[in-house]
């Protein structure tokens, strides 16, 4: 859990003010906060709830409902594996298993050295290249079981 220093509290308050502390803008506020901090731990949610004059339960409910928001810090190189239908048909499940084995983590987890985190997402629209893996912003297309290790080695 990160402890929030005053300057970070001020940052969150500034984001809330930017949206006029309007409850209805909660999702936009969360987006911008996550962009700033990388994730949304409990104390951050508390500050947002105070500023928007809503309950922590409401904020937590929204954070946990939408898959885009995360309460766990992502690794330095977030690995995202597309689980869209086109990728599934072309063997994405096996690719996921290979990443799980090599990194020794499950989907939604981060490695102990905080280097990699693993998640799946639905369709990035690169169906012509299925199966597709994203590491950070870089897209790897037509990934095979053999290439998984090579891909990870690029980041070692």
């Amino acid at each position: 859990m990160m402890t929030i220093c005053e300057s970070n509290v001020a940052k969150i308050e500034a984001i809330c003010k930017e949206y006029n502390c309007d409850k209805g803008e909660l999702i936009n506020v969360l987006h911008q906060t996550q962009n700033t901090f990388g994730y949304l731990p409990e104390d951050v949610q508390e500050i947002i709830a105070e500023n928007l004059q809503t309950s922590l339960a409401q904020v937590y409910g929204v954070v946990s409902f939408y898959s885009f928001f995360t309460m766990i810090p992502k690794g330095k190189h977030p690995v995202n594996i597309c689980k869209g239908t086109a990728c599934y048909v072309r063997g994405a499940e096996k690719i996921i298993d290979e990443f799980k084995t090599l990194l020794d983590i499950n989907i939604g987890e981060t490695t102990a050295d905080e280097k990699f985190s693993l998640s799946s997402l639905r369709c990035i629209g690169a169906c012509g290249l299925a199966p597709v893996v994203l590491i950070g912003d870089k897209v790897y297309g037509r990934v095979t079981l053999d290439s998984v290790k090579e891909i990870l080695d690029e980041y070692q």
Binding site: I124, G125, A126, C127, G128, L129, V139, Y140, G141
Partner: peptide, 8 residues
């Protein structure tokens, strides 16, 4: 600039 062309 489609994802497929970008990556190919």
């Amino acid at each position: 600039n489609g994802s497929s062309c970008q990556q190919a």
